[in-house]
Nucleic acid binder design. Structure first.
Length: 603
DNA sequence: GGGCCGAGCCAC
DNA sequence: AAACGTGGCTCGGCCC
């Protein structure tokens, strides 16, 4: 592990018990503070607010720090607009912990757009990906500086009318610790050769902040109509199952009014298992794989019930409830380095798992007078695997823009390209995708409904054509285990927890580790790429002054909301910038981007 | 009644 | 259910 080995001893320029600060509550004090701050090339910034949501919060304090002293602006008492030129100055570095929050807070409450951010939270995440997930300021100040911050004070800012000494100490310390943290992290980023990826993440931060602020509009009527139809289908499926099972139960059949009551909770796997056993269906579990293979009408009915129930519970009223009362839109949380591979994660709600069915996606619409540009990379992960493995057959397919899965099938089955049938193409596609996840013969056999021996034969045939793919996958899997980390094309690293040989599941963990080692360079490079694309698109939109903003991203896809009359131009811009982003990482394999103008979230 | 966890399932 | 990678959400069920 990188940092654990040495704890840099750093001399603090402030006293953690008694930090130097100045509370700014008059216009005159603002003027003087800004005069001092202007002399600094590097500033630390932090905000204290009553809530996390920028649209409902009350901004209480804005702290701007120099290495020795914190200037605490009481936002309730003074106009902080004299800070604007400093915070928006692209040449002056701003050190911030979780800069997304401060960016949004200052943008919404003070119309200040922070430029040139070094985010200590993202830096810490980049430096510890894979072996630590705790990146709070409290945790990293303790780890690097041995300073214990009292984060519980945060909650008091909304309640206390006058600022206490304790609160001000806390506010000062919060911003002062950022300087030594920055120093340590910067050195570590250089040592681990992670400055390039850090730069990418920092430039991506404002884009993510803006995406969240802008949010997504939902056609609520359409959503509810869709929901109603789903509920009808679900209730029908549920009733059929209950009636089927009812004869097995002797009591609790009717309620006080003589209505039939449910005899089993269909959402409880334990109860289902028990009920099925009564009809002679003894299943090892009620998982989808098992139910699919079970030749019994009840299994089919349960599958149908579940498919509706899942959609209703996860994507029904709960999503509507997330519409913000002030903006009328949905503002999800994007975690910029959510997955250890570098991918985004999204929550509250997770818009990255909205069903692809257009019944759901077409409910996401642009505002009045706007359009969507919906753009995605075509087969980006396979293209990355082609580039990384340098497999000639794979690269050739993409260079000649052939249907890769069909080509794979024709080579595996030794038949002309044109004669490849649906089933053959499906098999080839399954292998192409499965390999990226480190899939083996047994699990391939299950998916394709063939014997393990047949699957092995198929794989061998595959590797005869794509020998370098296999050698590359084996190599990166081994390397991950040997060196303890994986890297991506953008220079990202993911470290691995080495399993304990004494652990009974050691072998299993090790092979899991190897599969992660195979997948991470692919998935991670794809994450790097979409981040470059977001940055390029955002910068170009600003440069040209378009009325447009990215509103959503799903791993290989970007949604931009744009003023209708600019839609075509921005569509071209998005396509061009996505390709430019890809070319930063892919030098041999061409990429394809599908970008279109649309009135709904659909391809 | 809140916290936690696994099962199950949505996305790429 | 599974030796198929990365996530988040909802539910039941258990614990305190």
């Amino acid at each position: 592990m990188p940092e654990e080995t040495e704890k840099p001893k750093i001399k603090l320029e402030f006293d953690p018990k008694n930090p130097d600060y100045e509370l700014i509550e008059t216009e005159e004090q603002v003027k003087n503070a800004v005069r001092e701050l202007k002399k600094r090339e590097v500033l630390a910034v932090d905000c204290e607010a009553t809530e996390l949501d920028p649209y409902s919060t009350k901004l209480v304090l804005v702290q701007v720090g120099t290495p020795k002293k914190a200037y605490i602006f009481n936002f309730q008492k003074v106009d902080i607009s004299p800070l604007k030129p400093l915070l928006e100055d692209p040449k002056r570095l701003k050190i911030v912990q979780n800069g997304k929050f401060d960016y949004q807070m200052l943008k919404v409450n003070a119309k200040i757009t922070i430029e040139n951010i070094f985010d200590t939270m993202l830096a810490e995440r980049i430096l510890t990906t894979g072996f630590k997930r705790e990146n709070s300021l409290e945790a990293i100040a303790l780890k690097h500086l041995d300073i214990q911050l009292d984060k519980s004070i945060w909650k008091t800012f909304g309640k206390i009318a006058t600022l206490t000494r304790k609160q001000l100490n806390y506010a000062a310390l919060d911003v002062l610790v950022l300087f030594p943290l920055f120093k340590i992290q910067f050195k570590n980023l250089q040592k681990e050769k992670l400055t390039r990826i850090a730069q990418l993440e920092f430039r991506c931060l404002p884009v993510v902040a803006e995406m969240e602020l802008r949010g997504s509009k939902i056609d609520v009527e359409r959503w509810r109509q869709n929901l109603k139809e789903l509920k009808e289908k679900r209730d029908l499926a549920a009733a059929r199952i209950q009636e089927e099972l009812r004869p097995l139960y002797t009591n609790t059949q009717v309620d006080l009014f003589g209505n039939h009551v449910d005899v089993v909770n269909l959402n409880s796997p334990i109860q289902i298992l028990g009920a099925f056993r009564k009809v002679g269906l003894d299943l090892p579990s009620t998982g989808e794989a098992i139910l699919r293979r079970t030749n019994h009408p009840l299994a089919k009915m349960l599958l149908e019930y579940r498919s509706h129930e899942k959609l209703i519970s996860a994507f029904g009223e709960n999503l509507i409830a997330k519409i913000h009362p002030k903006t009328g839109r949905i503002h999800p949380d994007y975690r910029q380095i959510g997955a250890d591979t570098g991918r985004f994660a999204c929550s509250n709600p997770n818009l990255q798992q909205i069903p692809t069915d257009s019944a759901f996606r077409s409910c996401f619409v642009p505002a009045e007078g706007y359009k969507f540009v919906v753009a995605d990379y075509s087969q980006i992960e396979l293209r990355i695997m082609a580039e990384l493995s340098e497999d000639p057959a794979f690269m050739k397919a993409y260079k000649e823009d052939k249907d890769l899965h069909r080509l794979t099938a024709s080579q595996m089955y030794n038949i002309p390209f044109e004669q490849v049938g649906k089933k053959m193409r499906f098999n080839a596609k399954s292998i192409n995708f499965g390999l990226m996840y480190g899939r083996g013969a047994n699990s391939l056999a299950t998916q394709l409904g063939i014997s393990p021996d047949e699957a092995k034969l198929l794989l061998n045939k595959y590797f005869q054509t794509y020998g370098k793919v296999k050698r590359w996958l084996d190599k990166v899997g081994r390397e991950a285990v040997r060196q303890g980390y994986s890297t991506t094309l953008g220079g990202r690293k993911r470290w691995y927890q080495r399993p304990d040989p004494a652990d009974p599941s050691y072998e299993r963990q090790l092979s899991h580790f190897e599969r992660q080692g195979k997948n991470t360079p692919i998935q991670g490079s794809s994450a790097d790429m979409i981040k470059y694309a977001l940055v390029y698109i955002y910068d170009k939109i600003r440069e040209k002054g378009y009325d447009a903003c990215p509103v959503h991203t799903v791993h290989d896809e970007i949604l931009v909301e744009v003023r209708s009359k600019q839609a075509e131009e921005v569509r071209d811009l998005v396509e061009k910038e996505m390709i430019r982003a890809a070319k930063v990482l892919l030098k041999k394999v061409p990429v394809k981007v599908d970008a279109k103008v649309s009135d709904v979230w659909e391809h």
